[in-house]
Nucleic acid binder design. Structure first.
Length: 550
RNA sequence: GCGCCAGUAGCUCAGUUGGAUAGAGCAGCAGCCUUCUAAGCUGCGGGUCAUGGGUUCGAGUCCCGUCUGGCGUGCCA
């Protein structure tokens, strides 16, 4: 917000002085306060193009910039930085603007309503969601909320792999558990089958509902029946896990439905028309190596069935047909080998493969008492998303997942997530919010509140800590835009911690409500109320609750 | 072997897209509650940014090599 004002002002001055400015320059908050409130590298970046030494250019610019009274001091520093020391008025005005915008503050039209498809989680419907899915859910959902807030038109979609091999194995696993319940000896449970407890539960449910009748069907009908039963149960389980986590999807796209609509044949024919398929060893291959993949990929196996890739590609093409101009897939760590073939297909079919953007989330390790929690999917020993959420709570889980950048491994410390002190960043941030609410409540009780806030009240805010808080608040709009464009929601978590830290420090140093001066009290209440607003906005974007007392 | 990701304080991690003297929190030590929530605050110490080169006014950030760790490299999904 303030950055934008300075940026605009610099451009105005550049134009006035007749300087070219093709290259973009930055306006930043320098890490050393001696270098001012804000600092710009404009003269350094643009010096060459204007055939001027950076310092000489900066000098000319400062002369012109000084005509604006918003600055307390302007100076050249280092190799040609322009350092801005702002007059408090500028902060005071910014605070008033923030206050007036309320919960709309930070919203923008930056995204120009571009249609963006966010596909995430998309777990196999063959079991409960695991913690990587939880990370994907928290990440994707937060990115969605932020993109929407800054003016994109995003959609959340979950692709359901309800056809193919894994689902067959699921049905077979269920049948074995059913037979077990009927008293049959089934011997060793097959290695590749699903070993999880949930399959037993499904069997018990189905057995209670239908008992022996299941086995009176033909083999083929029974398998279909088991598939349908298991899928609807497990999908419902996944949907409800996600909902408990605060994540809902606009679309659940079924692979089975896509196949029924004939898209598989369509895609195969497109690829064939593009002359990039061939037959070898009774299988049909995609010549993806022509488009940058490591090896060619099978489209149709020698048994006549189709590989996962074909309907998935078809699904991606429907996204384009539905008018999305950017397709973002959020994948787990074990799928990066899959990307080149998708991109290859886009190129083969003459689509711009830059439309397809893949974000990889790295793995999640749970730590308990300093030890890594060992999990084995094969043995059915996994910590599920539900386990985690019921253990540490939605807020903690979401915050921890969002707080790390996507392509870094995430070590999830269970004790830390459960702790209720300043070790735990979630509580640290929520406590700051609750503290504000509590102060305001007390101020109301003590009749210290102004009848209404007025702009001139902000004139009392001159302490460095107060201006620093406003500066932090003023960062939000630009921050949200860069989070959306860089797909880096973890920055919002960092921001919240910094804001909370500012607030706690301020609280410890100054009496907010009840200063000797009534004007100062009013000003400070206005300030912390704006902080409260920003907390509410950010908690909302991260899907966290905003407790008013703790 | 090849490919992708990562390597920053004892630990967990930031680092504003190449800017000035690399920052937080935890852990350690020393302090602060008759006053708006101590789930908080203040102070101290802590670094060869894995490593070797390169690019330029300037590199934790970009390029190349090496080392270490994770993952991938199915006619699985």
């Amino acid at each position: 917000m303030i950055k934008q004002i300075l940026h605009d002002h610099i451009i105005e001055v550049l134009n006035k002085l007749g300087y070219v400015h093709e290259r973009d320059f930055t306006v930043e908050v320098p890490n050393n306060p001696e270098f001012g409130d804000y600092s710009s590298n404009a003269a350094m970046v643009l010096g060459k193009a204007n055939k001027l030494a950076p310092k000489a250019m900066a000098e000319a610019m400062i002369k012109e910039l000084k005509k604006n009274k918003s600055y307390k001091k302007l100076e050249i520093a280092g190799p040609g930085f322009i350092n801005f020391h702002l007059a408090p008025v500028m902060y005071q005005k910014a605070l008033w603007d923030i206050h007036q915008l309320g919960l709309e503050y930070g919203k923008s039209e930056h995204g120009k309503l571009e249609k963006i498809l966010l596909e995430f989680v998309s777990a196999n419907p063959t079991g409960p969601l695991n913690i990587v899915s939880a990370r994907a859910a928290a990440f994707g959902d937060t990115l969605y909320r932020i993109m929407k807030f800054v003016g994109y038109e995003p959609t959340r979609e979950f692709y359901v792999n309800d056809a193919g091999n894994q689902v067959d194995i699921l049905a077979e696993s269920l049948e074995l558990r059913l037979r077990e319940l009927q008293g049959e000896k089934i011997g060793d449970f097959p290695y590749e089958a699903y070993h999880g407890e949930y399959v037993r539960h499904l069997a018990q449910k189905l057995n209670a509902q239908e008992g022996i009748r299941v086995f009176m069907m033909t083999e083929k009908d029974r398998m279909e029946h088991l598939k349908e039963f298991a899928l609807s149960e497990l999908l419902e389980m996944q949907r409800s896990s996600l909902e408990k986590f605060g994540v809902v999807f606009e679309g659940w796209v079924s692979e089975k439905t896509l196949r029924a609509e004939g898209v598989v044949e369509e895609v195969l024919s497109y690829l064939t028309e593009a002359d990039c398929t061939y037959e070898k060893e009774d299988a049909i291959w995609f010549r993806s190596t022509n488009y940058g993949d490591d090896k060619d990929r099978v489209l149709m196996k020698s048994d006549g069935s189709i590989t996962y890739f074909v309907p998935d590609l078809a699904y991606h093409l429907t996204k384009i047909q539905r008018g999305y101009t950017q397709l973002i897939d959020i994948f787990g760590p074990d799928h990066h080998g899959y990307v080149p073939r998708l991109k290859a297909a886009f190129k083969a079919l003459k689509y711009d493969d830059n439309m397809l953007e893949i974000i990889f989330l790295q793995q999640v390790n749970l730590f308990e008492e300093g030890e890594k929690v060992k999990m084995s999917k094969r043995a059915g020993k996994i910590v599920t998303m539900d386990d985690l959420v019921s253990l540490v709570g939605k807020d903690s889980a979401r915050f921890f997942f969002i707080a790390r950048k996507a392509n870094a491994h995430l070590n999830f410390d269970l004790e830390l997530a459960l702790s209720r002190n300043n070790d735990n960043p979630v509580y640290y941030c929520q406590y700051a919010h609750a503290r504000i609410c509590s102060i305001i409540k007390k101020a109301k009780k003590d009749r210290l509140m102004p009848r209404s806030y007025k702009e001139d009240m902000t004139a009392k805010l001159v302490k460095p800590e107060e201006l620093a808080i406003i500066q932090k608040l003023a960062d939000l709009p630009d921050l949200l835009i860069s989070i959306a464009d860089l797909r880096e929601p973890h920055r919002l978590a960092n921001y919240l911690e910094e804001l909370a830290s500012h607030l706690h420090k301020y609280y410890a140093k100054y009496q907010i409500a009840g200063d000797k001066s009534k004007e100062t009290t009013h000003a400070r209440l206005l300030l912390i109320d704006a902080v409260r607003q920003v907390f509410l906005i950010c908690f909302g974007l991260m899907g966290l609750s905003a407790p008013e007392k703790m």
